[in-house]
Design a protein around this nucleic acid. Structure first.
Lengths: 307, 307
DNA sequence: ACATCCATGTAGCAACGCTACACACTCCGT
DNA sequence: ACGGAGTGTGTAGCGTTGCTACATGGATGT
């Protein structure tokens, strides 16, 4: 019945360890353990089970944690209501992004957000390979993530997903390439080309497999880099071609890298903001989100113009 | 941010006086006042205003109270989830009814509910004339109420409404009446009849007005009684005819009172259960509600058979 | 003007939830 | 096999919180 305790259970469901919950909520493990014990006694049935040196939630515990989320959402919404009344989007908002989105969206967005007094936005980036996007929502208010169409790695976890933009993945060619004059490219066109790819496990790999399947021929991946800037440098040096997200490309050296739309393969990625539902209700968070969306639209519109 | 305090604000929105809130929550007025003061300081803007010797909520206060309801609902739902896990519909449920519904539904319903161990249902009745149905939800978990079609006295107050049945209002005639052989009756048929009516202010009055309007002639109301049993007795004694809810009629003396459907006038009443949304989530309350609905269906089906 | 009915301050007390520390247990490397 | 590092859980003590009891200040109405 007590909200604080329910909140602890919810944290436990996500962080899977009392010690972690204690750290996250600035408490001693003992305090957390005690409160969960009280909750268990109130509930009248076991909510956790020992498992090795840690513990796991029972079915009842998970179910209760899920309803605890609804409580947290309602509570956050109440907070937001009265923040709106004071027109007060004050507070700290933490945000992680993968590098390319950070480069594309954050500078413009943060410039706008600087005009909101009392709103502090703390940003970091994390390599998308190393990071499990949904898990990051435990630590950050907003997680900028991407996925290819069709795969939904954040379904069913009860996270709030706000789409920001869908970005086409083009084929990057060096100037003077044999396909440089084409206005678009099909999988058949790139048979025999050398590719600069992403490391295994990166989602882009799937697109390359689709190209292989559609063209019916093996693809040669010469190098594997995680950083797009490196990839672009290799392409511009004529060492191969690569998949390049259309809006993310800085275009520092115009003319040296050409982007050609890819037809015949579903090559685009969804850039979204991922959040725990209660945090998504905070007025400060919603303000940041709104700016991110308009910034994404601006980038998209600007590219449509210049191309 | 504290739920307890939000709850107090919500109570204040409904009961309109700190003293009343204190009484309802088993506290001293001083305690309530202190907590609301803290809430106000946290919110950063005034939630109440002094008005005479009492106080009223500001716009912000009302808005916050509304979101407090959502919090209470989420919390009650969490409670219900784990009650379901234990299959434990334990607790006390208080219920008010208007007399006719109490007679029709409660005996059968309570007989069923007696089989649920640990569930205690406390029932009372209140005269529908004297009682403001929505206001009763502050005091009782379930309020059985009725309204004629078209009027919605409990709209917009944020109450949960569960329909139980729609009951036709027939014309009751004494045996041997000139219309006794008819299978239905129209407003034109009853021109010149003497009526036994309900007191002014009762919703039934509106039906009589509709009959007047449709038939185009004045209605003579000889007596006005609130209690249906009295009305029925007068009708059976041949002193007039009356509107009688079809299922509610006990039918103690079969053959002495005839019910004839009324055509050409929209003569039926909706019998519903009225609740504060958070209380409606309680498992015990939902259990009672479920039984009431099946009981209502049973009564309706049985009448369809015997007629 | 008085009694009455409000809301709201102040002092004190009980309960609650936290920290600090000690302990039991499981895993894992040496 | 045996520490050492990790986990969760008890116990004692202490600060904070939210309550009661009582007193005060306004507004109302007879």
């Amino acid at each position: 019945m007590d909200v604080q305790r329910l909140e602890l259970l919810r944290e436990l469901a996500e962080r899977r360890s009392i010690t972690e919950v204690a750290r996250a909520t600035h408490r001693t493990p003992s305090a957390v353990s005690q409160q969960l014990k009280v909750l268990e006694r109130e509930a009248g049935l076991p909510l956790t089970e020992r498992s090795g040196r840690g513990l796991i939630l029972t079915d009842a515990g998970r179910a209760l944690a899920r309803s605890a989320t609804d409580v947290a959402v309602a509570l956050a919404r109440a907070r937001a209501v009265w923040d709106e009344f004071r027109n007060d989007a004050t507070g700290e908002v933490s945000l992680v992004t993968f590098p390319t989105a950070g480069e594309m969206l954050l500078p413009g967005a943060l410039k706008n957000l600087a005009q909101v007094p009392g709103l502090v936005v703390n940003c970091t980036d994390k390599d998308p390979e190393l990071s499990d996007f949904p898990a990051l929502t435990a630590e950050y208010d907003i997680v900028l993530a991407y996925s290819l169409r069709g795969q939904l790695p954040w379904g069913g976890r009860g996270l709030t997903v706000v789409p920001l933009m869908t970005e086409p993945l083009d084929v990057g060619l060096p100037a003077g390439h044999r396909l440089a004059s084409r206005s678009w490219i099909t999988p058949a066109d790139v048979i025999g080309e050398t590719w600069i790819g992403a490391p295994d496990g990166y989602p882009f790999e799937r697109i390359l497999h689709q190209i292989e399947q559609t063209a019916g021929s093996q693809i040669t991946v010469a190098q594997q880099f995680a950083d797009l800037r490196v990839i672009e440098a290799f392409v511009m040096a004529g060492l191969g071609i690569a998949l390049v997200p259309r809006y993310t490309w800085g275009g520092d050296q115009p003319g040296k890298l050409l982007l050609k739309p890819l037809r015949g393969v579903d090559a685009e990625r969804q850039i979204v903001a991922l959040m725990r539902p209660d945090r998504a209700e905070r007025l400060a968070v919603r303000t940041v989100l709104e700016v991110l969306r308009t910034e994404a639209a601006r980038v998209q519109a600007q590219h449509a113009l210049t191309s």
